[in-house]
Design a protein around this nucleic acid. Structure first.
Lengths: 147, 147
DNA sequence: ATTACGAACACAATATATTGTGTTTTCCTC
DNA sequence: GAGGAAAACACAATATATTGTGTTCGTAAT
């Protein structure tokens, strides 16, 4: 922890108080003796999505969910399974940093769906990856069927 | 520190790593045993904002950020650029003393946005400066277009 | 001016986090 | 599918943070 005044990295904790989901510590720099506070919080950084045309928007979980639910429509997949899959997806995206390309979202969702339900996967892939030719479709299906 | 999964408040630290000015801890919930990370960072010293009616309130970085993000919505501006711009803005405000007028915030944000993205600038200015007349708007636009 | 509340301060007894090092896993890239 | 980087995992010896309680100070509301 860097002292915000002299940038020294050795500090000690003088006091600590918890507050719901936040932990506040009072620290003292071992070098310049100045005091300052720090906050500890659960890591859940926001991230943004870069669309194909370069525009940015905040990640929208509900939007992701809608897309996935649509692909899973009428398929025998429990809500629980879907929720877990969505959580995993969000985690994977979060790990990619503060900004992720929208195409990456599609890729990750696809890879997750593939693990769960082939039909849902194909449905999703056909939309998100914008399979240009029926050929791509056919290739994917052949590939899946052969396994 | 609340476990983000079961909301239990007892957790233990499994690991900790420092990274420049951030401290990352890995924790385990004593109840559900799930693991999660936390981040500790220096708390920015506070300063206050004088609102138009004279009332004071603490400067709220998140609020500032929300306003700016709103103005930048759907614009091709990277998070990094926005974050830097926000940091610069906060620094400029901080230098103005322990109390700053709310109108100053608007002016500084506007001047920063102007450097980055004209559209975002106009959006922001139209809200924060409460352009009374469409005229003001028109004038600004004409001015910008002519450059 | 008075009250009330949260923030800062202090301190001592105790419990828990930290550090260093090394291994394993995950997942992105090619 | 292979290679490689980053994150997670593990663990033991040691140092440091935490907790509880109480006082004081600053500032907002009355």
């Amino acid at each position: 922890m860097l002292c915000p005044y002299c940038l020294n990295s050795e500090t000690k904790v003088i006091d600590k108080r918890d507050n719901e989901s936040l932990t506040k510590r009072r620290r003292e720099c071992l070098k310049c003796s100045k005091r300052f506070n720090t906050l500890e919080a659960v890591e859940r950084p926001e991230f943004r999505v870069i669309k194909k045309d370069g525009r940015r928007e905040n990640f929208d979980y509900e939007k992701l969910k809608r897309g996935v639910l649509k692909a899973c429509e009428k398929r025998p997949i429990s809500s629980e399974k879907i929720d877990k899959m969505l959580a995993r997806t969000e985690e994977r995206l979060r790990k990619r940093g503060k900004e992720v390309k929208s195409t990456l979202i599609g890729d990750i969702v696809a890879s997750e769906l593939k693990k769960i339900d082939k039909v849902a996967y194909i449905r999703f892939a056909s939309v998100y990856r914008e399979f240009r030719e029926l050929d791509d479709f056919k290739k994917e299906i052949t590939f899946l069927v052969n396994r």
